[in-house]
Design a protein around this nucleic acid. Sequence first.
DNA 1: CGCGACGTTGATTTGCCTCAACGATTGTGG
DNA 2: CCACAATCGTTGAGGCAAATCAACGTCGCG
Lengths: 196, 196
Amino acid sequence: MFDPFNTLRTYFENRFPLTPEQFEYIRAQYIHKKLKRGEFVIREGEVFKYGLFVAKGCLRRYIIDAKGKEHILQFLAETWWISDIQGMLHGIPSSYFVDALEDSDVLITDQQGNQNVIENIPGFADAFIKGVQKHHQSKDNRIAAALSATAEERYDEFMEKYPSIAQRVPQHMLASYLGISPETLSRIRKRQSRRK
Amino acid sequence: MFDPFNTLRTYFENRFPLTPEQFEYIRAQYIHKKLKRGEFVIREGEVFKYGLFVAKGCLRRYIIDAKGKEHILQFLAETWWISDIQGMLHGIPSSYFVDALEDSDVLITDQQGNQNVIENIPGFADAFIKGVQKHHQSKDNRIAAALSATAEERYDEFMEKYPSIAQRVPQHMLASYLGISPETLSRIRKRQSRRK
DNA sequence: CGCGACGTTGATTTGCCTCAACGATTGTGG
DNA sequence: CCACAATCGTTGAGGCAAATCAACGTCGCG
């Protein structure tokens, strides 16, 4: 039987050692929530005060611009985190939406639980910060790519970085993420399948 | 005579009250550095362990992509900050460059000094976090704009947000920031000057 | 003073969007 | 359980925004 906490444990153990007692402590800080496809986790304007770990499934984070157009900023599959430090600590409302693309299993902790883990599990804070760092660096790269790379280059880069995501999200959402039209993405794929 | 610490004081006082004693405390945490035009503050691969406040002048932050092309990610003029939390706390090397576009005056503090201010000046930590939040939100918006807005829309948005920056940076750098060719930017400006 | 960097303007090309039409798949209600 | 609608991906035609290539004037700096 699938247990989302096993996924969490494996995730941690890949980063730092964890005794059974420590894991039990961690487990107590999280609650398990099942999400139906299409279910929202965060809506724009709401205050999101939690840390969320994706144990199974896939979510997306997106904004809606002034013209009413959706832009997918991020896909979140297994072992990805999302947390809004500003919402958690300062009650600042979210500027984006998050919803589930598949039926998913997520683990959620509140500000206090997050703080508990940071203070009591050596290694967690460090891993947390490194994750945040990576995220921001990847945002910088994405800005540069969006500004100068061609549609196909952005597609190739995505396929290289996240091959498994590409297989499970609808193609038009991948197009939204890449900032290209669904038609163009379809043509790129066709072209690439032809040449070998 | 210009005193960069006055700029810092004004900046703080606009955000939270500050007694003369508190300001003297803050002053002791920073050192003043003059930058020549073209001088580097951070190079890719170096570890940047400081917090930097621009009291006068203008800097730029940019990356160089796999094709060797520069992409300006950010301009930093008066009262802007740059700090690399990851470098400061974890020795992680920078992924970008920062240099001066004009002769500039900056105030620099090290990790300890930054920590001192956070712990001893109520209001600073809050302002710091809000600034970080704004920065990340603006990155998200920039990704969305780069993916879907036209060159002219991006230009207009920039002019509205940062009118004073546009007047002082070379036009081809603004083009680099916007992700358009210098020729296109020149044409956009001409078109807009004609119509009124 | 002279060179190089910068901005402008014109001509041409092209990558990608839009519009449109069409199968295939999904899922929903009668 | 089937029928119909909606959603999704594919393909084609046409158009446009912006890149590229090229030439030229100007300014600032060494």
